[in-house]
Amino acid sequence: MMVLFDMTKRRQFLSGPEEEELSLLGGRIRMARIRRSLTQAEIAERTGFSRSTVVDLESGKPGVSIGAMVSVLAALGLQGKLAEALRKDELGEELEMSAQKRAGGARNVADF
Results as ranks from 00 to 15, higher is better:
residue 99 A to T: 04
residue 54 V to H: 01
residue 2 M to D: 12
residue 11 R to I: 11
residue 88 K to T: 13
residue 55 V to Q: 08
residue 5 F to L: 15
residue 79 Q to R: 14
residue 108 N to W: 07
residue 87 R to A: 14
residue 111 D to E: 13
residue 92 G to Q: 07
residue 49 F to V: 08
residue 54 V to G: 00
residue 97 M to N: 11
residue 66 I to M: 13
residue 37 S to W: 03
residue 50 S to R: 03
residue 87 R to V: 06
residue 90 E to I: 10
residue 112 F to V: 14
residue 18 E to S: 10
residue 40 Q to A: 08
residue 4 L to M: 11
residue 63 G to L: 04
residue 13 F to E: 14
residue 15 S to V: 01
residue 73 L to I: 01
residue 66 I to R: 05
residue 100 Q to M: 12
residue 30 R to N: 10
residue 109 V to D: 00
residue 17 P to G: 02
residue 92 G to A: 15
residue 25 L to W: 07
residue 112 F to M: 07
residue 39 T to R: 11
residue 54 V to N: 02
residue 87 R to N: 09
residue 102 R to H: 08
residue 73 L to P: 01
residue 26 G to V: 08
residue 42 E to M: 07
residue 29 I to K: 03
residue 28 R to A: 02
residue 27 G to I: 07
residue 64 V to S: 08
residue 99 A to N: 05
residue 59 S to D: 09
residue 79 Q to F: 05
residue 48 G to K: 05
residue 53 T to A: 09
residue 28 R to G: 08
residue 1 M to C: 03
residue 39 T to K: 10
residue 97 M to E: 14
residue 110 A to M: 05
residue 107 R to C: 03
residue 56 D to I: 00
residue 40 Q to Y: 03
residue 85 A to S: 14
residue 109 V to F: 00
residue 52 S to Q: 14
residue 59 S to V: 00
residue 95 L to W: 13
residue 58 E to H: 00
residue 40 Q to N: 06
residue 12 Q to S: 15
residue 35 R to M: 11
residue 90 E to H: 12
residue 42 E to I: 00
residue 69 M to P: 00
residue 63 G to H: 13
residue 67 G to S: 10
residue 73 L to F: 03
residue 37 S to H: 14
residue 67 G to D: 14
residue 92 G to E: 08
residue 12 Q to V: 13
residue 82 L to S: 06
residue 39 T to C: 08
residue 51 R to V: 10
residue 67 G to Q: 09
residue 42 E to K: 12
residue 60 G to W: 01
residue 73 L to H: 01
residue 61 K to D: 04
residue 78 L to F: 03
residue 82 L to M: 13
residue 48 G to A: 06
residue 84 E to G: 10
residue 101 K to Y: 09
residue 77 G to C: 02
residue 7 M to I: 15
residue 93 E to I: 14
residue 15 S to I: 00
residue 2 M to E: 13
residue 24 L to T: 12
